[in-house]
Simulated assay, not measured.
Amino acid sequence: MLSTWALETFGPRAEQIRRGVAEALAVALENARDAQQTARTRHLHPFGFTLMSRKFEALARAFADMADVDIVKPQGSQHELVVLGGNLLFPFRYAKDRSVSVVNARIGDGRPSGLVQALFTRFGPRPWTEQLTLGGAETGMPEPVIPAARALTQLPEGTRLVLIAYACNAGAGLLDAWWGEAELLDRTGNLRWHHYEAIPLAGAALTGTLPAPALPIETLPIETLPAEASVFSGGAMPAPEMNPRSPYERAAALPPVSEAPAEAPDVADEGR
């Protein structure tokens, strides 16, 4: 179901656009993982570099034939930006796993570029708290550098910045995606969301994820557990068995596991 924000922002095409964003992210991620596999290296640079470029290219290709679309390449930028019905779509990876909430999303791991600062200054929502001045020195975000600001003069003043924040990694694939509007708070890329909402990924992201490994029954979602296992206190006390493995493990032919394996950290980062 579409929100009031989505309908007000994109009109009757909102569902089509939301689905196109999810599919474009899935394609970009699949290409990045293909690049990583082809490179045959344990370093994740191929994944990060490919994802950085392909996320913009996949969005541009997804909406190239839609009415009222402009594909803009600002001077000094390597990437094409999609402006759809006056809304500039800007995708960025905010996390590599689900340990980071989108509420705490940041643009990049370092200082935002002059172009990113200019995008927020010109097309982002009006800050909820105006910047204060102390002795003539302004606190908060500085004015973006002049070359970056000039690179955006080809975009109309009424353009609206719509952020697409997603979490993914080379192993697990596309984990989640959100879109909305936010203001850039400081030099480290912290955001203050004015509105954000999830983008459904069911179906669209299937091509961008590897098959999930079989899980022991104790780690399965509650809705997939057998009915008798979902109520701990119900039923008769089971008699001890020589083989303590669950019916699920025996049916799936899973080897016995004494303890859960530790997850390997993902060090991939876009731009590295």
Rank of each mutant, 00 (worst) to 15 (best):
L51V: 01
F47E: 10
F56G: 13
N31L: 08
N31T: 05
E57V: 04
L44A: 14
H43T: 00
A39Q: 09
F49D: 15
T38W: 12
F56E: 10
A26D: 09
F56R: 03
T38L: 15
K55T: 02
M52Q: 14
R42A: 04
D34K: 09
T41M: 05
A35I: 03
L29M: 02
Q37V: 08
A28S: 08
E30R: 10
F49S: 14
F56L: 06
L29H: 11
P46V: 01
M52A: 15
K55R: 15
A39W: 07
D34Q: 10
E30W: 07
P46Q: 07
F49A: 15
E30H: 10
H45C: 03
A32S: 13
K55S: 15
T38K: 14
T50W: 04
A32E: 04
E30T: 01
L51S: 11
L25Q: 10
N31R: 12
F47N: 09
R33C: 06
Q37S: 13
T38Q: 15
H45R: 13
D34I: 08
E57S: 13
T38E: 15
A28E: 01
N31H: 11
F56S: 13
F49H: 09
F47I: 06
F49N: 12
A32H: 03
R54T: 04
S53F: 09
A39G: 05
F47D: 10
T41D: 01
A35R: 11
T38Y: 13
A35F: 06
